[in-house]
């Protein structure tokens, strides 16, 4: 099963490589990883997407917690949560395709953030499956480049992953 794990880490040099090293050393799957400092500059927040059966994911969480730099950790999939990923897509946009693409952008509530005579850059935010759906909908030959941030997420309700 797919899990989204949010980790608060000490914002120390090397903290990221400890996490990356852990996954490669122990042979765990890692689909994506995003990281940035939080409002408290001494802390970084990392969002990891991984897959594995319950036993493996349990071990992954234990091993992450064991890292001396890990302050706190939450498996977002254990409760109601919101998942968001940002995607930038550069597409060929000429003649009739321009209208068609604009219609798709409206349907998906995306934004066109760069326009030239022959191309658009489209920005789209949403859960991973929504981004996948958008890519599936756009004709393949129009796509020049796709950039995805990897998912990040937050739990619903008033409780937060803070210290």
């Amino acid at each position: 099963m797919r899990h989204i794990i949010a980790v608060l880490l000490e914002n120390e040099a090397g903290a990221l490589s400890r996490v990356a090293g852990l996954f490669s050393a122990r042979g765990y799957n890692i689909e994506s990883l995003t990281v940035a400092p939080t409002d408290d500059p001494t802390l970084s927040r990392m969002t990891l997407v991984t897959t594995g059966n319950d036993d493996i994911v349990e071990q992954i969480k234990k091993q992450l917690n064991k890292l001396v730099d890990t302050v706190k950790l939450l498996d977002l999939c254990e409760g109601p949560h919101i998942e968001r990923e940002m995607m930038l897509v550069k597409v060929r946009a000429e003649r009739r395709d321009r209208e068609e693409l604009k219609r798709l952008v409206d349907i998906f509530r995306a934004k066109i953030i760069d326009v030239t005579d022959t191309s658009y850059v489209i920005e789209l935010t949403g859960a991973t499956h929504k981004l996948d759906a958008f890519i599936d909908t756009v004709a393949e030959e129009l796509i020049i480049e796709v950039v995805r941030s990897g998912p990040t997420g937050i739990s619903r309700g008033e409780k937060g992953l803070t210290i």
């Binding site: 040099a13 090397g14 490589s17 400890r18 090293g21 050393a25 001396v68």
Partner: peptide
Amino acid sequence: TVGITRPCVKHNFL
């Protein structure tokens, strides 16, 4: 050294 020893230490510091 921090990179080489990372997988075989409990923790390391530079």
